[in-house]
Simulated assay, not measured.
Amino acid sequence: MTVYIAHRLFAAHDRSLAADFADRIARKVGPDRIFLPFCDTDEEDLVAEVKGRRLFELDRERLGRLDAMVAVLHGPSLDDGVCMEIGYAAASGVPVVVLTTDFQTYSMTEAGTHLEFPDPLLQAVATRIVRVAKLGPPPLSPAPGQSRFQEFQARNVAQTNTALDAAVDAVLDLPGRAPLPAGSPSAIGTPVYVEASPYTAWDRDHLAEACADAGHTVVVPQRFTASDPITGALADLAAVRSASRLLADVSGPETPPGAALLIGAALASGVRTAAFQPRPTLTHAHGREPNWRNLMIQYAVDAHLDNEEAVLSWLAA
């Protein structure tokens, strides 16, 4: 079993948590069977002509030959690189365990179905979700001299240890790879799937309208309006893998999680993809070229578009 551990790279606590999990699962399957990004790509010391692209290539090469993925996700703002990797794995038939200690659940409406994550796509594609939402129990007798802050920290450590051990057990109990059926063109032609950003207005979709005005059949997401968000999410995944192109609005503080996941699925399925971002912001890391989005998103797409004219040109190419 080869296990890929997907985690947010830009926070020390997430890197530490992923390393802790890697060590635990390595004791069961062997260290050579584990790929831990940043650690195993030697990111800080790697020298390459275009470092971000090289890191993407190394990660994608590993994504193409794994047996299982463990993804660490916390909170309503989910790391776009991790979500992209989940989409790639899911479309490749790789079982995915998602690990979270988030105590919140989410819903589309006040009375709607409660979801593990803000976008139902994450829950729809996960083979297992390991969720430990409560702190460890307080000690029956606090250690002498222990402050309340140390006690609180210990309860968090206990919660994390429970989650990591449960994730190890989940990985060891996973089924084998089961590739999804290949996407097939729609009976009504070769549609363009348009994924809007939740950070833009919900009452209009200028990208879908532009594609339709240009004569293309357009498919838009179902999961946010479906009575069953999980069923809608699976329909969205199938629609992207059957589309001729994916046009994803990646606007926001980071690529929206659903858009990131669909970009990964499209890449694994050979679907041409463009990212629409009219107001890009750049990220910078030591020794790496500036990136207009997470590098896993930047290099997974075929084009980066910033206006409607660029969209029409991409559609016509």
Rank of each mutant, 00 (worst) to 15 (best):
E61M: 08
G287E: 01
G189N: 11
D306W: 00
T109P: 14
R128V: 15
P179Q: 01
T200H: 05
G252N: 00
R279E: 04
P95T: 02
M108Y: 09
R8G: 14
D236L: 02
N294D: 07
A133L: 03
T283L: 10
R148K: 11
P278M: 07
D42T: 10
D20S: 12
D203S: 08
T281L: 04
Q146R: 13
G136C: 07
P139Y: 02
E289H: 07
A239Q: 14
A124W: 02
E110M: 15
P191M: 05
A238T: 06
H206I: 10
V70C: 08
A285D: 05
A303V: 00
A178I: 07
P181Q: 06
A154H: 12
E49K: 10
V3A: 03
A68T: 03
R24M: 01
P142E: 12
L180N: 10
R62I: 10
A143R: 09
S107C: 06
A300V: 09
R53G: 06
L122I: 15
L295M: 15
P278H: 08
F276R: 00
L174W: 03
P37K: 00
T127K: 06
S269A: 13
E43H: 05
R223L: 04
L66K: 01
R60E: 15
S141K: 10
D102W: 06
Y299G: 01
H114Q: 11
R131M: 14
S107G: 09
V168M: 11
L315P: 00
L140P: 09
L58Q: 02
V157A: 01
G136S: 05
G52N: 09
E61Q: 13
Q146Y: 10
K51H: 04
A124T: 02
V220P: 13
Q298K: 09
G215C: 06
N294P: 05
L9Q: 07
V29W: 02
R15M: 13
S227H: 12
P179I: 03
A275N: 02
L267T: 00
R33A: 10
I34K: 04
V219D: 13
D169G: 12
Y106F: 15
Q159L: 14
L305W: 00
S244P: 14
L262R: 11
L237Y: 01
E195V: 12
H286S: 12
E116I: 11
T231L: 09
D203Q: 04
S141V: 14
S251W: 01
A163I: 09
A126L: 03
L315H: 11
L164N: 13
L164W: 13
D249H: 05
P142C: 10
G183S: 01
G232F: 03
V97C: 11
R155G: 11
